[in-house]
Nucleic acid binder design. Structure first.
Lengths: 345, 345
DNA sequence: TTGTAAGCGTTATCAT
DNA sequence: ATGATAACGCTTACAA
């Protein structure tokens, strides 16, 4: 390992002080353009790279953002991370990513690691069984910003970045009702999480508003896996009054339901109209194409990262925007469209 | 921001030297168990956390691994990252992840950032148009280990972690031939990349070995998007001699092909038997279920990270294992199974 | 516009 | 078994 050149080396070679070199490299206004050029070219020549540790040690900031997600192997999460990475990169921040695997315990461990790594801020989507934010107290105490996205929890210390899951659930259900469904089943995830409980509330409110009974047997709380989808179909088909609509809180699971229903001889959307959630790529790959709620993952990631960075730069007071609400969109495709669409000419 | 306690604070409070405290916290053998306990409990009491920058500055290592991937919003990549994250976390390494968006230019920029961040090592899956590794020369020169996974390039400086794409392509094609296919189309990605060129070679070799003609019109190089799948179907159906087999180098695209074919009235696998690649979740969500090649993403991530960490710890000489080959597995499902499987009793 | 010098928190080396 | 001290490379008052 050859020796790394430092600002002292550059300084010595140019008969300048290290301070001047440091300033020049940081584009400090009070350094003449001439010496700046001189220093920059010499730096290039030596293959100089700034030592982040020395710099961080001195500055007491890390330019690193911690991200904790429930899992990495989900398309939605990947999209969010892509957005975060893009923004962070543009602003010269690094991302440190870890997954909680849906467990509070692991989430606590991750938070601790992030704390010790001294991240400048934290972006978190909560594990499915997290029911308090005490493990972020160390951050709150030090005023290190923590922002929650997608799976959030109301808390005065945190900015939340979400879509209006209640409204989305309401719209999806209302759409099914509009297609003539009178008995709509809802398959969802752990209702500790806002994303699921809010969609459920929206579903219930829609039923209520349209004078449909709220049969509790029609609500199935699961882990939204492929198997859960097949199980839900089993439940559905064995009901005395078979549902004619199905609202599933995730596309992967919804796709699985569609497969199961078709295998059992149901036709979709005639017998059962189905709406999923997320607009996962799978929605357009299954037949019939899945109606769903589009969920701007990339944008959510970008906004989360940008908000955090703005906050770190003091450009935005966190308290002024405690919740950022992104738009969603109901996408009606074949799986729920009983009246054929008009064909464009 | 309250002041962070340092080893000096602990030292002063216990009437010890900072050196002793440092050693105790690092579990140095030459410190009495008694003082170690004393120091540890005091550290806990003060909420002390080690300052990584000071430590890194002194030690000249970062315990950070850089990862460059073509894109984050792919299920396969997400799986790989999950594996890497797991291993890195267990060994107290941090991951810094960035995406090249399939562009050499962005990959170069990422490499530069990683270099300036002084990552201890690099894990890279190449962008689709990368045709040389010159942008990693800075790493090679400093003997910073660079490992390539999945999309690799032969190079004496790098360890490669791959599956046998040639064999996988050969097996997939041979399977189709075994199902009676005589005219097999192959839809693949940029053949600059080993993953695609090797699968193509395997495809060709299989045709050759079974005495089938290698019609170049049957090979379609695309970006493997959903649209590319539909386009491929268009090409296929307009051929004078319509193919009876289809081998697609990615499940997402394959699923799209299946959808397109069915829409055009083909039955699968009777008219066209289809095999995809990757065992993406979509493979089991489309009807008919997609035959595919299982590709151990999580495992690949774990092995890549572990190998790199082993190398960094001097536990493994990089030159001794220049290529790590992981197992793959042809999964036969409905989309290519013409003879019905025997039913287990 | 540039220089001087102190200090960020650790760890390694040499002493004791 | 513990202590004193000098780096590590950078930034930033303060001075010139």
């Amino acid at each position: 390992m050859e020796k790394e050149p430092t600002i002292y080396d550059i300084a010595k070679l140019l008969n300048l002080s290290a301070a001047t070199v440091s300033r020049a490299l940081n584009d400090h206004p009070g350094i003449s353009t001439q010496t700046k050029q001189l220093i920059n070219s010499k730096a290039l020549e030596l293959g100089y790279r700034s030592n982040t540790f020395a710099s961080n040690l001195r500055r007491k900031e890390t330019r690193t953002i911690g991200v904790i997600v429930p899992r990495l192997d989900s398309f939605f999460i990947a999209t969010v991370l892509a957005g975060m990475e893009k923004v962070a990169n543009e602003s010269n921040y690094n991302l440190i990513i870890s997954q909680s695997l849906e467990q509070l315990k692991k989430e606590m461990a991750n938070a601790k690691t992030m704390y010790n790594t001294r991240v400048d801020g934290l972006l978190v989507s909560l594990a499915s069984d997290t029911d308090n934010l005490n493990h972020f107290n160390t951050f709150f105490r030090k005023n290190i910003p923590v922002m929650l996205f997608d799976r959030v929890m109301e808390q005065k210390n945190c900015t939340n970045i979400v879509i209006d899951n209640f409204k989305a659930g309401y719209e999806a259900t209302t759409h099914l009702i509009g297609q003539g469904c009178r008995r709509i089943m809802h398959v969802t995830g752990n209702i500790k999480r806002n994303v699921y409980s809010d969609r459920l509330k929206g579903y219930r409110m829609a039923l209520l508003d349209h004078g449909l009974p709220a049969d509790e047997d029609l609500v199935k709380v699961t882990n939204l896996t492929r198997q859960d989808g097949l199980d839900a179909v089993e439940t559905l088909t064995q009901m005395t009054q078979v549902p004619d609509g199905l609202f599933v809180a995730s596309d992967l699971c919804a796709a699985s339901c569609v497969g199961g229903l078709i295998k059992k001889g149901f036709s979709i959307p005639q017998d059962v109209a189905v709406v999923g959630f997320n607009d996962d790529p799978v929605a357009q790959l299954v037949a019939p194409n899945l109606s769903t709620v589009r969920y701007p993952g990339q944008e959510m990631g970008e906004i989360a990262a940008q908000s955090l960075i703005n906050h770190l730069n003091g450009r935005l007071r966190i308290s002024s925007t405690n919740t950022i609400l992104l738009n969603h969109e109901l996408i009606v495709r074949e799986s729920s469209q009983r009246v054929p669409k008009l064909i464009k000419t």
